[in-house]
Amino acid sequence: MVVQTQSADETRALGSALAAAARPGDRLALIGPLGAGKTQLAKGFAVGLGITDTVNSPSFTLMAEYRGRLPLFHQDLYRLSGASEAFDGGLLDERQDQGVTLTEWGDRLDGGLGVGRLDVRFELLPDDARRIELASADLDRYAPYLEIAAGWEARARGAG
């Protein structure tokens, strides 16, 4: 499923919409270059979960935790080079089964997240536009996200 957003505001709105599908144990890998909108999508997702705290980039702090409709674990592997570092650093723990985990630079986990995840891939387009692709090998769990994205894209095209 491919979605396009035209601005950071729209990327946040998409994140907020996707949060409606969130269930305990969900893991989203946010993948894409610097400034592609990974943190913006996470910020919107947090709003969608009813989180009122300011969500900012955990690039240096590596993981931040928030309380909302579900606990949100917001991770950033920008400074990591492989899965073993994330495991040894304690970035994956059993509490995440009770909440939703968003992992920026999630591709650096290699197979560490397992196939039970939703990949959200960001590509830079000219100006502020972004191409955002959602894909998962576990459709039983993640189909609701794809449906929300499809509806969102249809509305965006209709409006455009």
Partner: peptide, 8 residues
């Protein structure tokens, strides 16, 4: 960069 596993 700072690699946390290395840091720990």
């Amino acid at each position: 960069g700072i690699v946390p596993e290395v840091a720990a």
